[in-house]
Design a protein around this nucleic acid. Structure first.
Lengths: 341, 341
DNA sequence: CCGTGATTTGCAAACGTATGCAATTTCTGC
DNA sequence: GCAGAAATTGCATACGTTTGCAAATCACGG
């Protein structure tokens, strides 16, 4: 009933020592049936629950995972966040959120704040990491997982989709559809997702003797993507692309809107558009966007598995670099090989 | 450099007592310039940062705010979450996320888990609260803010938009547009947002001698909203509504897609659609949805203000019930009064 | 009924910080 | 240079838990 019930009060009421109470609430500790029952009863009556923070202090494990995320405007992230939080919750962990803007200066402060909370692990979504920050976490013994970014830092686990393969698939699909002038609208150039998607895309084009017809940068931002679309498509039909790969869905929606509603260009009639992520709105009929699926479930699963591995058995855990393959989801925003003729 | 640097080590290196170190990192404590400098220098060299958890234990303030959220699929919530986290971060607090599914049984467990973390406050978004859970928080001395839900529980602060007024605005706008058969697609009926929006809407209709032409329930869910749209509109033109108010944007997109792409009904040519929330996709040209704006910035501002009030001055803080008015944003999904004729 | 080993229990020392109190130092005005 | 006030400092305790260790209890076969 009272504001703060401690194990000491429970112990007094149950007529046992405080240690006994602690052991009852510590799985795998040595307690007899009888005392366990007495303690549980007393705890129930007083409304006692162990103080996680006090437990964290002495055990060194806070059961908190820090999550750094740059922006939730790209709807891939809310989805991932929801799944991640649920998966961790099921294992008794919880997510402490830290917002970081793109610029890296901020990230240092944010990482310091995270470590202040004695988190058991850190997930960094959509943000790149300087190697000295990574090192600081290493030395603090806190495992770090890069989510949706890969990076060549010694000993850092990263989980992403196979962006190179995804980019290839898009190029092959568009070429198979008979497109001859294929454009690319890039994301923020500091991002590995952007880099890898483009690399796979252009490599596949080259393999078939083609090259990118035109390229603009949209920085993963709606407004910039619109400008990029105007710059790329506000020209006569024979001097603009007949297909465009946009580095993520979030920009692809903006590009489609510019094509259809500003420039009066039919999608997919005159221009095919392909995105990346397969966020929920991609399936909405108004866009019906052909796109490469990022398998959020699998990515989250790998992330959680990596974290648990490092937390539970730090001595044997090895850093992983996982790239999960995702299928190209054929919808209606791009002419497909069968309607090619 | 080492894994864990404590105030004791800093004290040793700076040649002062541990208390002195503590005071240097406690704003408003009594320390001389000289020792402050010595301590800061030593702390810098050792990479010392105070342990938030240890601090929380003795001070009783964890600087953690628990956030309960049901689902992030409605894009109003990611936006609110981002703003909330940023606002709290600026004040030295951080957000610990807890996912709760709709059913209330789960919520009890979740609330218990939250309290285990000794949070300084709790924000409950989009979930209703049983009064005994509320009472438990009260007795634990943890302030609770209901975000986007209002509820008549003694002493609980709630922040929402003025859903009744918003519902009225929609009705008045549609009637002014010359619509004669106005339908309503409801959200989940357990939600106060749903109840209030519908109440304002039907009240305004009644005031003008009209009533709801037809009503379906979409439960704030995409799939259900689609079914509702089919049930309401798959009929001859004179037996279906000429306008529909959908209880939130997330459902409104689904409804528009069914109308346009399944039933071949022009929006706004044959049917006007109005939503609620003004989430980002509402402004995307493909939907261009006329909708009532929820002013997320103001709502978050009030939420943070209420929390800080209760945390900093619990003795004078009074529970508030705030309803923030939001404008009807006129876009292209509904015929407006001027094109009435 | 006793001895032995296994199980259960309590004691006490941590974990890293904040803070009341008393002792010490520094400052102020004369 | 000195008394007194003000500021600073260190000591020691507390926060609520876990956990190693030793004491106590238990089960059980002889």
């Amino acid at each position: 009933m009272a504001g703060k019930v401690t194990s000491l009060q429970v112990a007094a009421r149950a007529g046992v020592s405080q240690s006994a109470v602690s052991r009852v609430f510590t799985p795998g500790a040595s307690v007899s049936q009888k005392t366990a029952e007495k303690v549980r009863k007393a705890a129930e009556e007083l409304g006692y629950r162990p103080n996680v923070l006090a437990r964290a202090m002495v055990s060194g494990k806070s059961r908190i995972i820090g999550l750094v995320v740059a922006y939730l405007e790209n709807y891939f992230y809310p989805e991932a966040l929801e799944k991640l939080s649920n998966a961790l919750q099921a294992r008794g962990y919880h997510v402490l959120i830290f917002m970081a803007s793109q610029n890296a200066g901020n990230l240092d402060d944010v990482m310091s704040e995270i470590l202040d909370y004695q988190v058991d692990g850190i997930v960094i979504a959509s943000v790149s990491l300087s190697s000295d920050v990574a090192e600081r976490c290493q030395s603090a013994g806190v495992p770090v997982v890069l989510f949706n970014r890969s990076q060549d830092i010694e000993g850092i686990t990263s989980i992403s989709s196979d962006n190179v393969a995804g980019g290839r698939k898009v190029a092959e699909f568009l070429m198979a559809g008979g497109h001859r002038r294929i454009g690319y609208i890039a994301g923020w150039e500091g991002a590995s997702t952007q880099r890898d998607r483009e690399a796979g895309f252009t490599a596949a084009l080259h393999d078939s003797g083609q090259q990118v017809f035109s390229r603009e940068v949209g920085d993963f931002d709606t407004a910039r993507a619109r400008e990029a679309a105007r710059a790329m498509f506000d020209k006569p039909a024979d001097r603009r692309p007949d297909a465009v790969f946009v580095a993520n869905d979030h920009m692809a929606f903006a590009v489609m809107d510019v094509l259809r509603f500003e420039l009066g260009i039919a999608v997919p009639g005159e221009v095919s558009v392909v995105g990346y992520d397969d966020v929920p709105p991609a399936a909405w009929p108004a866009y019906n966007l052909t796109t490469v699926r990022q398998r959020a479930n699998l990515m989250v699963g790998e992330t959680v598995a990596a974290l648990m591995d490092h937390i539970d058995t730090p001595q044997t855990a090895r850093p992983r670099r996982v790239a999960i393959d995702g299928p190209l989801i054929l919808r209606g925003s791009a002419r497909s090989p069968i309607d090619k003729g």
